[in-house]
Design a protein around this nucleic acid. Structure first.
Lengths: 153, 153
DNA sequence: ATACCTTTCATACCAAAGTATGAATTTTGG
DNA sequence: CCAAAATTCATACTTTGGTATGAAAGGTAT
């Protein structure tokens, strides 16, 4: 940081000397204080921008950028196994898990029943069991918890 | 962005007029081109630093976070800004959005009402409007769609 | 074989969610 | 200031979700 200020100091010194030259050239040849002012303004604006950038360059804000990509085959194997382990750990059966996934897609009990070719009663039984095992009282909470646990996507 | 340049343009104009005053004051009273140069340099260095900061403020370091999802044409810039834009595009009000978020956390209408200090009726009205705007029929579907649209986390 | 788990289904009942309608109040933008 | 949008609330009604209970059928491990 000290080094940086030293460099900037040298630059200012060089600029000062340059100014003397520019000053006399412009003032003697053109006798124009306006032109001189303009050049001066331009130079120091640029210098200011440069200095400002240099001195504050490290103040960066880290922002997450979402990159869309299809899942890597190698990566997909891991989550599924974890899902499986966690599912079994929670005592959730495969059928219940199926229903949990359909539930997370926003389907009603009736729609789930139709998709799985079972009665609404069956779906209700499963969902009730899922709620017990996930320790929640509503399907929205079940989906949220399952997502938080990485049980489902 | 255009607005920013306009503001900068006005500042430059004001600076130019100020310069005339400073120029004559200093040159006439002190007859010192060196003092004038110094003031000019200082002003425009500061201006430069300010302008540089302003115009390049958004250059953050972007850390890429992989999200496994199909590319969405709407989702190209920063998530936070898109949330706002998308929300407005869908005509979803700030209050409705609040409720949508609480809904996605698995809360019931009663719980949402308690958190926001409003009646269940109000929450129901909002949720119904949300469903219309998201073109869904259930809260689970609303949450799913909002997540898919990256409207909510 | 039998004890256990999973899956299936029903019936009944209560709670929560969602719709429709209308209206009062507040905020906000021109 | 005024019009439009947002927020609030109520009442009445329908639909869906969730609980409780009981039961039947199929698979499986001891």
């Amino acid at each position: 940081m000290i080094k940086r200020f030293a460099i900037y100091g040298i630059l200012v010194a060089v600029a000062a000397i340059s100014l003397q030259l520019i000053q006399y050239k412009l003032l003697i040849i053109n006798n124009s204080i306006e032109l001189y002012s303009g050049v001066l303004a331009l130079i120091f604006t640029i210098t200011g921008i440069y200095a400002g950038q240099r001195l504050t360059r490290k103040k960066e804000v880290v922002i997450e950028k979402l990159v869309y990509a299809t899942p890597d085959p190698v990566m997909t194997s891991l989550p599924i196994e974890v899902d499986e382990q966690l599912r079994e750990k929670l005592g959730i059966s495969k059928r219940e898990f199926e229903i949990l996934e359909l539930m997370s897609h926003g389907h009603s009990n009736q729609e789930i029943a139709d998709k799985l070719f079972v009665s609404v009663s069956t779906v209700k039984t499963h969902t009730s069991n899922i709620f017990l095992k996930l320790d929640v009282k509503r399907r929205t909470a079940a989906v949220k918890k399952a997502q938080d646990l990485n049980l489902i996507a």
